[in-house]
Nucleic acid binder design. Structure first.
Lengths: 192, 192, 192, 192
DNA sequence: GATGAATGAGCGTTCATTCAT
DNA sequence: AATGAATGAACGCTCATTCAT
């Protein structure tokens, strides 16, 4: 197995196990076994479990941003841009429940807080920046309600995450139309 | 220390530690130490850690419901009733950050999922029933958008939780006015 | 409850629980509960658990000896005397399975060894002395095989204990006739 | 230390401690210490304490059966066959006092009862089957007293176990001649 | 570089014993 | 005298991490 393959297997195994069982349900030995490598090998690629968890997070976020931002254009009117990102996000969650579960586990840990702080301070790249720009422009042009940026994020993101969770847990089933309607409702919440 | 004081100390210590560090970061021995009791003493009041966690949750929920529902009247128009509950909830979260953090930890665990399922099925008492009634009536009277109840919950609750978290983590600071404006924005999201 | 009643209740509860569940399955708190007394009360009557266990043993042995030796006469010929004691013993075991189980638990512990040592050295009273006398006389009069006393004990007692255990565990069912035949077989083993 | 050595050390330490102090007197940490390994290491070789206890038992039984049955021939007359097995057993006990004490502890536990049940039902291999065959044939050919098989076992085994215990505890000392005479006495007990 | 056996601190929990009431 | 709440050492077991091979 080539070096990169090995790393990839470790990442895949860790994501699966953590998403399925939480951080507690994913001991390093189990990750190693599922990845088909030795337990010690993981430590050649990741300094320790925390680092693995953080890198895993970054990988998911990157892939998610890429998919969401595909076809995104700053030429589109505000509402369309919001719907693009919002539905993209919600669709990604639903189509990648393992990633979603992982993100939830992650955000509910000390690291999650640190990462979120960096994001809000703009220290991190990603689709969030598109959101940030969108919201700042939207407020400047009086299309959006005048709120601290963080709250605008929460009004827009909050329901999407919660809805995705309920879909994945089986409390409700979202089809394409419902996804759109849900994101439209979020828009109603933030638009002036 | 009287018997009830001791129990209260255990509950306080557990809530603090779990809120601050999560379930993993709150070993029974540490809870006992912070409560100023012996490790075995906890088991006189709670059969095991799971029971402690669940009772803690129940206590928080009860207190929260009581405060939120105080002054609530089904005579008030829909919007007013929603604002009453929504601002009550958000205010409670902000004024009881430990409770809020605890609830977050709890809902991100297998127990949390089970509890949420019961709630949705109406098997549990509490403020949620008021919400449920409000939403069902609101939809029936065409005041609210027509959505599955679960999604309506998410559109209304999701942002409040997210906003509360950001306030508590210090990413934004909510004053009384901002609390109201935030809940009003949530109303805009669900109203027809 | 009078003092002696209380002591008796503790003894009864302890015997039952230890016989049923072994020493591990009989915590002091459980004994206290079944006896209907406070946990600390036991320590007014018995210095600690070990003392309780030992006194319990003595009580069982005393009662057993009394029953077994009832009607025993040194006038009877050797064989009859052996059958009297042997069948008495086996019958007692079968009719008092709790006592038997207790004795087994007890003998399989450090205390059991000490007690057995005392017995063989003649430091303890009881039915054993009758056995001892019987065996010593029997050997002197060439009715019994010439063996160290200890071995004669073992040849005579060993099967009775084992048979009783198997009866109580349900591996075999002994009726009155079988009891006699079993003890007769033991006699065949030791007689010259 | 090689892998097999380590396993062997754990087995040795466990057998010693359990034989000397019983199951309660042999905590896993103590076994590990005496074996010269870390506490967690034991769990690489044995799933849990119960498994360790059972495997230990199986190992002892296997070795014992092999030694006892060495040179055993179904051509030999009944008495000779019984003496072969009986003296083999007693000699094994005396020469392997740790094994003997271990077996006693084991049989006085829930597992021991289950194992004995299996043996009686013939679900287990080993020297017992030779005994069983011997007894059944012996009864059929009227050489042995007519007893339920279980009782015949007890009459033959019971004294051997008891004698071995007394020898090991130092209450009596058996030499080769005394071993033979003891087993002969057992034969007298079961022969017609 | 890769391995996986070995480690030991730390977990949740039990229970004989004490002592304030 | 009697209580039973409180204790904390000790248990079986897990798992992130190390290091000899």
């Amino acid at each position: 197995m080539a070096r990169n393959d090995k790393r990839e297997e470790i990442v895949r195994a860790a994501r699966e196990l953590i998403a399925e069982n939480g951080f507690h349900g994913a001991p390093m030995a189990m990750i190693a076994e599922r990845a088909g490598v030795g337990a010690g090998t993981i430590y050649r690629y990741f300094e320790n479990k925390d680092v693995l968890i953080n890198e895993l997070y970054g990988g998911i976020e990157d892939r998610m941003n890429q998919i969401i931002m595909d076809g995104y254009s700053t030429e589109t009117p505000f509402r369309g841009r919001f719907l693009h990102i919002g539905t993209g996000l919600l669709r990604y969650f639903i189509e990648h429940p393992l990633d979603f579960r992982y993100l939830e586990q992650f955000h509910n840990s000390p690291y999650g807080v640190a990462v979120r702080r960096d994001k809000l301070l703009g220290n991190r790249e990603g689709g969030c920046n598109a959101f940030k720009e969108l919201f700042e422009q939207g407020m400047a042009q009086q299309v959006l309600k005048n709120f601290p940026l963080v709250i605008l994020f929460d009004l827009a993101f909050g329901p999407l995450v919660t809805v995705a969770r309920d879909h994945i847990l089986g409390f409700v089933t979202l089809d394409a139309a419902m996804i759109v309607r849900t994101v439209e409702a979020c828009w109603d919440g933030i638009k002036r």
